[in-house]
Nucleic acid binder design. Structure first.
Ligand SMILES: [Mn+2]
Ligand SMILES: [Mn+2]
Ligand SMILES: [Zn+2]
Ligand SMILES: [Zn+2]
Lengths: 140, 140
DNA sequence: CCGGTCGATGCAATGGTATTGCATTGTTTA
DNA sequence: TAAACAATGCAATACCATTGCATCGACCGG
């Protein structure tokens, strides 16, 4: 209510701390997925390791999901409210722009179901599309 | 004919060298995708950097494709003959086993077509499924 | 109110992978 | 044969991620 950020953390069983509130605030305000270095840059005086562990905590608790976009650094974005630590329900496609190197969640594009050969036990599916984002495609 | 490995390289405009033939041989014999460290281990006396540049050359010439499976190291696997440096036609799903950490190409599972929001210009699509491979799923 | 406990934080150090610079070697070409 | 070029090998560097350890501070039992 009066503290929506804190409530978000508490709902995921994460103890609110100043650092965690700051990181969550950054993630909520940014439209794109952020790497550890990205978050660090938004919080100039924050310690890199603490941010790293904050993002790990958020991931473990199902608040954010990791995105391996091939840029070399893992990126993070907020999960949908329905997600839990056990089951990541918010399964969508990610787009990595090779020009501006930004990664976007595309919640409107779900990951299609796959028919794998027998014997494979699926835990997680990651679908990353690379190319030019609308902004970079227009700017040529 | 008498030198199928050399012919494979020549067909891709790659000058055959002893090192390149060795790396190609390893890639052809392994059923799974290999990281730089994997190839290095198969060729004990080979220099890591040279193998790295060999794999880069192979990638640039369309002989192999890169697989970012989230293991931390990029893996490489041979492309289908129809692939060219400009267009990677051999677009299939990859499976990463979280137990044995091996990555397999699943040529029988093509990457489905996606309907992205307007404005996105697609260059490449990567679909990686994580879980347990048939061997590890059975061994539990 | 006090001391103990535990989680969170910050700094330092380490590990792993990818990449670049540069000298050397070996092959092709003029 | 000499120059030009490609490939190789060693060293050094750049990142990114992760761990160890000491410290800080909130919280709890007494
Ligand atoms: Mn996402
Ligand atoms: Mn493949
Ligand atoms: Zn862009
Ligand atoms: Zn396996």
């Amino acid at each position: 209510m009066a503290h929506p950020l804190e409530d978000t953390l508490i709902a995921r069983q994460i103890t609110p701390t100043p650092m965690r509130l700051l990181v969550l605030d950054v993630l909520q305000k940014e439209p794109t997925a952020l790497s550890l270095a990205d978050v660090e840059q938004h919080l100039k005086h924050a310690d890199r390791i603490t941010v790293h562990r904050t993002l790990k905590t958020f991931t473990d608790k199902g608040l954010v999901h990791r995105i391996e976009d091939g840029s070399g650094a893992v990126k993070f974005a907020l999960c949908a409210p329905a997600c839990t630590p056990e089951l990541h329900r918010d399964l969508h496609v990610h787009f990595f722009c090779v020009r501006c190197r930004e990664t976007a969640c595309l919640p409107a594009v779900p990951v299609p179901a796959l028919a794998l050969p027998g014997g494979y036990q699926v835990q997680e599916t990651s679908l990353v599309v690379k190319g030019h984002c609308p902004r970079c495609a227009g700017a040529v």
